[in-house]
């Protein structure tokens, strides 16, 4: 753990409100960016960012010095986002079942066509297609690819966040790229 992290964590554990405000200011955009990249909805990402900091506030006493503070916060943000996606998936499934049973013309849940606000204007359309392809990836590949491309995190950092070995992350990234190439080829061929 970094020395600055150590001091900040000590202050947080002592219930220092100024330290918590500093932590929020330092990490709010990183956490929000991670959440929005995974859940693809600005309001949900805002909500999840708040939930992440609430979790940090309540669980700081559980934080151990064997990892970096940033890694721990990223891990919480990723977990919160995944929980949210699973909840949505369950809701969607229930929505479809309700729709089938009631014979309504539309299902209760629809996937929005999201575009990341940080994407350059000239790449917006391609980014939309890439996001659609990323959505089809298995969960671990999606996390690794998103953290690397959107948050610009190194493979080492991703390995620490995902609690995996470096070689596992390399493998995840490799398979993610293969799958994306295949899906995108299919998309452009159709």
């Amino acid at each position: 753990m970094l020395k600055t992290d150590h001091i900040l964590v000590k202050r947080l554990k002592n219930g220092d409100e100024v330290a918590f405000r500093q932590l929020v200011n330092d990490f709010q955009d990183k956490v929000f960016n991670t959440c929005i990249s995974l859940v693809k909805d600005a309001d949900d990402a805002d909500d999840l960012t708040q939930e992440t900091f609430i979790e940090v506030y309540h669980s700081i006493h559980k934080f151990r010095a064997d990892s970096r503070l940033s890694t721990w916060i990223y891990r919480i943000a990723v977990n919160k986002s995944l929980e949210h996606l699973r909840r949505l998936k369950r809701k969607k499934r229930t929505g479809i079942l309700t729709w089938i049973s009631s014979q309504d013309p539309e299902p209760a849940f629809q996937v929005s066509d999201f575009n990341h606000p940080g994407v350059l204007a000239e790449k917006r359309e391609q980014a939309k297609i890439l996001i659609m392809a990323i959505d089809k990836l298995p969960e671990n590949q999606k996390i690794a690819f998103t953290l690397h491309k959107m948050e610009d995190l190194s493979y080492e950092e991703i390995a620490e966040i995902m609690k995996k070995s470096l070689s596992s992350v390399e493998s995840l990234m490799h398979r993610a790229k293969i799958n994306l190439r295949k899906d995108l080829s299919d998309y452009y061929n159709s």
């Binding site: 990183k30 960016n33 708040q50 609430i54 940080g118 790449k123 491309k149 452009y188």
Partner: peptide, 27 residues
Amino acid sequence: TEKVENTLQAFDGIERAKIKPFLYTRL
């Protein structure tokens, strides 16, 4: 192939999305 490779680079130069102001107050 070119299209695919260009699409894979769609996130190059991406900026970090910024959260709405006053997060700490909401929190």
